[in-house]
Structure formats: structure tokens, C-alpha cells
């Protein structure tokens, strides 16, 4: 559905993105992972046409994304990292605005607004202002604003920052629903467990370059000598593990590393802030 080829972008001679390529198919969630400053946001901005790449290009269903006013942008929904809402407009009015910006009008707009609110569980708060919402509700409305025009591709830039586990779980359910409806989703995050739960494929970038990509199993296999991952019920230490096994307690072992292990192995453990 969305295809990016050899995207390059530099600022003041410094390469922010250096030749990133990725594809997102219909009904697929692709995770874009990377440490701070890796080039994730710049990549997302190029994918949705906010900034033009110095080299390379982005296509949707084979059609290249053009300038600011390109109609192809109607096929993209962007969920920004910031909660980009008008706090003093009702939830439905926010959705109507974004729907109209993408050319949705009339009865169809009303139906889309209702569907988007229903999807994110805010149907009963349609008239309420976001200023009265919790952080999780705002995040869900933030996502709904990117869906109201029913895009084929949804780009989500860290959409769960600062939300509680319940809201996060609800957001995951929403995204899985979208995947089941055939949408192509790109998901950037710092949280590895989110990528593990949601993503069909993962692209890891660092310093503007792709350093790994593939399914979760493919990535796990790429880490040499990774320790077995075990899930235990009860207190944990090395001796206890042996004792537990010897005493017949349940010990589930999974082969390969976690996605977080893979990520840290590839990008290192030093802080990037």
C-alpha cells in the first residue's frame, strides 16, 4: 500500500535520514523503532508529505505523493506524537473539522464522525470538550481525528505516550481492528512490548539508517547467542530456577530474545537524550 524508497534528508549538512526504505501492506502493522534522534519522526514526516525528501520518494498504491495539496494525502491519516486537538471544541466538532479538511462532507461526515467516536469508545462524549478529558481519552480522540476520513494508511507517531495501561490496551484494540479492516499502519514507539504485541514486521533504524528489518522471529534469530526467555510463576533467582524445574513446577521457556533484547543489542544501551 505504502512504499518508501531510499529516503534521504539532511539538515545543515547533517544527515537525518540516510536511505531508508520500507513497505507497508494492507492489513499490516509495521513497527518503526529507533532511539532518540534515530530519524523516526523525520521519516514519518516524509511518509505523510510534511517534508520533502532530498532524495528518494514515497508512493501510495504506486502513485507518488506530490506537493502540499496532493489529493493522495487523503489516503493518509497522521496521528501526531502531540495531542493535536482543539481543546475548546467538542470532540465531534474536532472530528468534523478534520473530516472536512480531507473533503468529507454532509451525511457521510456525520456517519464517519459517529463511527470514529464509536471505535475509540467516546461515542457518549461527542459534545464534551477535550479539555475535560483524561489523558487516555485525549489520546484516543487524537487517533480518531486521523481516522475520520477513512484513510488507507495510518501513520502513528508514538500514540501512547503518557497513557495508563487501560487506555493503551484500548488503543491497541483499536489498531488491531483497523488492521483487520485492511488498513496499512506504521507504528513508531519507544516501548518494545508494544511493538511485540502489535507489529507484524519491524524496522529498526539508528542514525538515520535501517539497521534491521523483518518479522519478530526473523529479528530474534538475528541476535547471536541470545539467552532463552523464560516466564516464571514465583520468585526468581538462578538456584531457584533449577529447584523449580527439579521440583516439577511449571517453567515455560521460549526460544530467542525479546524484541527489547534485539533492540538493545542493535542500538546499544547508552542513553541518547
Amino acid at each position: 500500500m505504502l512504499s518508501a524508497r531510499e529516503l534521504w534528508k539532511s539538515y545543515d549538512g547533517k544527515v537525518a535520514v540516510g536511505g531508508i526504505s520500507l513497505d507497508i501492506g494492507a492489513g499490516e502493522i509495521v513497527g518503526l523503532l529507533g532511539p532518540n534522534g534515530a530519524g523516526k519522526s523525520t521519516t514519518v514526516s516524509m511518509l505523510c508529505g510534511l517534508i520533502s525528501p532530498d532524495r528518494g520518494g514515497v508512493t501510495i498504491a504506486g502513485e507518488p505523493i506530490g506537493s502540499d495539496g496532493s489529493v493522495l494525502k487523503r489516503r493518509i491519516g497522521l496521528v501526531t506524537q502531540e495531542i493535536a486537538l482543539h481543546e475548546n471544541l467538542g470532540a465531534a466538532r474536532n472530528l468534523e473539522l478534520f473530516g472536512e479538511l480531507y473533503g468529507v462532507t454532509g451525511r457521510l461526515l456525520g456517519e464517519r464522525v459517529a463511527a470514529a467516536l464509536e471505535l475509540v469508545g467516546l461515542a457518549d462524549r461527542a459534545r464534551s470538550h477535550p479539555s475535560t478529558f483524561s489523558g487516555g481519552m485525549k489520546r484516543r480522540l487524537n487517533i480518531a481525528c486521523a481516522l475520520v476520513h477513512d484513510p488507507d494508511v495510518v501513520l502513528l507517531d508514538e500514540p501512547t505516550v503518557g497513557v495508563d495501561p487501560q487506555s493503551r490496551n484500548a488503543i491497541f484494540d483499536n489498531l488491531e481492528t483497523l488492521r483487520s479492516r485492511g488498513k496499512a499502519l506504521l507504528y513508531t514507539t519507544h516501548y518494545m512490548e508494544e511493538a511485540e504485541r502489535l507489529c507484524d514486521r519491524i524496522v529498526i533504524i539508528d542514525r538515520g539508517r535501517t539497521i534491521a528489518s523483518g518479522t519478530q522471529d526473523e529479528l530474534r534469530r538475528a541476535v547471536p547467542g541470545s539467552a532463552a526467555r523464560v516466564e516464571l510463576e514465583g520468585a526468581v533467582d538462578a538456584e531457584l530456577l533449577a529447584l523449580l524445574a527439579a521440583r516439577g513446577l511449571t517453567v515455560r521457556a521460549r526460544s530467542g530474545a525479546s524484541i527489547e533484547d534485539v533492540f538493545l543489542h542493535l542500538t546499544g544501551r547508552e542513553l541518547r537524550d
Binding site: 514526516s45 505523510c48 508529505g49 510534511l50 506537493s67 502540499d68 495539496g69 496532493s70 489529493v71 493522495l72 494525502k73 487523503r74 493518509i76 497522521l78 501526531t80 506524537q81 502531540e82 495531542i83 493535536a84 486537538l85 482543539h86 478534520f98 479538511l101 480531507y102 473533503g103 481525528c145 486521523a146
Partner: peptide
Amino acid sequence: RMGLWKRLRAAPLSRAAL
């Protein structure tokens, strides 16, 4: 600062329209 401008710019609107 709030990201609203980015979201508006992501819409299929020309700079002149914005």
C-alpha cells in the same frame, strides 16, 4: 508547538489555503 499545525499541514491543503 501543540502539533496542531503539523496535523493541518498533513491534510491535502496547499500552503496558500492554509
